[in-house]
C-alpha cells in the first residue's frame, strides 16, 4: 500500500502549484481574527490531478482561493516557480456556485472568455461552438443559463474555463450541487477532457468516491478552524478510468477504507463543532 502520511514530494522541475507554510486568516466583524487554515504545504506537479477532501467548513475552498490569488495569505505561494502576486493568470477556476453571466447565452458566455486574450469575435464564437460541442451542448448554444439544467450549466462553465487553455485548473466542488448520476457523468467528462492535454488540477470535494476516482493523489484535511493537511494518499489505479467501473475494483475499496480511516475522526470533530455552536 502506498498510502500514508508523507511529506510533499520534491520535484526537479518547478511544480505547477506550490504552497509552503501557508496560513490564511480572516478578520471577523468583531475585529477578532479567524484562522481558517495553517501550515499548508502542498504541491501539484504539471499534469498531476490532486484532490483535497475534508469535512465541511475546513477551508478547502479557501486554499483554492489562495492559489487563484483571490485572498491574501501568509506564507509562500508559487506558480510554476514564480511567487504569486495578484490574480493567478495561469489558472482557470471552476466555482461551486453558478458563475455564468445570466444575461449571456451559453455561446456568448463561452466566447467572452477569449475576449481578454484579444481573440477576434468571430473566431471566439467558432471556438466556443466547438467547446460546447465537446461538452455535449451543441444544441443549446442560444439558451440562457436559467433555461439550462444544473448539469448543463456546469458543462457551460467547464467549456468557459477550458477554452482559455489554462495551465492550471482549480475546481471547487464543481459538481457538488448535482445529483449523483449527473456527477458521475461530469467526472468522466472531466477526465476525458483532462487526459487530452493533462493540466495540473487541484480539485476540492467532500465526496470521497469522487476524490479517489479522479485523482493521482488525495490530500486529507483536518476539521477547521486552523485546519491543516493531515494525510496524503497516492491513487495507483490505472488510467484511463471510467468512474462507474473503477468503483467496483477491490483496490478502490482498499483506498477508500484507508482514506476514510484518516477522514472519519475529522468529520466527527467537524460535526461536534457544528453542534457546539455556530462556526
Amino acid at each position: 500500500m502506498s498510502s500514508g502520511v508523507s511529506s510533499a514530494l520534491p520535484t526537479d522541475e518547478a511544480s505547477a502549484i506550490e504552497l509552503r507554510n501557508v496560513e490564511i486568516a480572516f478578520r471577523l466583524a468583531d475585529r477578532s481574527e479567524y484562522r481558517a487554515v495553517r501550515d499548508i504545504d502542498l504541491s501539484v506537479a504539471p499534469g498531476e490531478f490532486v484532490t483535497i477532501v475534508g469535512p465541511t467548513g475546513c477551508g478547502k475552498s479557501t486554499i483554492l482561493n489562495a492559489v487563484a490569488g483571490l485572498v491574501a495569505v501568509r506564507g509562500n505561494v508559487r506558480v510554476f516557480g514564480a511567487p504569486l502576486a495578484g490574480l493567478n493568470t495561469r489558472a482557470g477556476y471552476l466555482f461551486q456556485q453558478d458563475a455564468l453571466m445570466p444575461w449571456k447565452t451559453a455561446l456568448a458566455n463561452v466566447a467572452v472568455a477569449l475576449e481578454p486574450a484579444g481573440v477576434p469575435v468571430v473566431e471566439a464564437r467558432d471556438k466556443a461552438r466547438l467547446w460546447l460541442q465537446r461538452v455535449g451542448l451543441a444544441n443549446f448554444l442560444d439558451r440562457y443559463p436559467h433555461q439550462l439544467s444544473g448539469g448543463q450549466r456546469k458543462r457551460v462553465a467547464l467549456a468557459q474555463t477550458l477554452i482559455r487553455d489554462p495551465e492550471i485548473l482549480l475546481m471547487d466542488e464543481p459538481f457538488g450541487p448535482l445529483d449523483a448520476q449527473t456527477r458521475t457523468l461530469m467526472g468522466d467528462l472531466l477526465l476525458s477532457l483532462w487526459s487530452a492535454d493533462r493540466k495540473a488540477v487541484l480539485f476540492v470535494t467532500h465526496d470521497l468516491d469522487e476524490a479517489i476516482s479522479l485523482a493521482d493523489r488525495v490530500l486529507v484535511m483536518s476539521a477547521g478552524p486552523a485546519a491543516r493537511i493531515i494525510a496524503e494518499h497516492r491513487i495507483d489505479l490505472p488510467r484511463p478510468r471510467a468512474s462507474t467501473d473503477i468503483r467496483l475494483e477491490p483496490r478502490f475499496h482498499a483506498l477508500q477504507r484507508a482514506i476514510w480511516a484518516d477522514l472519519r475522526d475529522e468529520v466527527m470533530r467537524a460535526y461536534d463543532n457544528a453542534k457546539a455552536g455556530p462556526e
Partner: peptide, 25 residues
C-alpha cells in the same frame, strides 16, 4: 461576487468587467 470573481479569473480587466458584468447588472 461569484460572477465577478469568475469574470476576473477569465482575465477580464476593468473595462471588460464594466461591459460584461457591471453594466448588464
Amino acid at each position: 461576487p461569484v460572477i465577478l470573481a469568475n469574470a476576473r479569473m477569465l482575465g477580464m480587466k476593468d473595462r471588460q468587467l464594466m461591459r460584461h458584468v457591471y453594466w448588464p447588472a
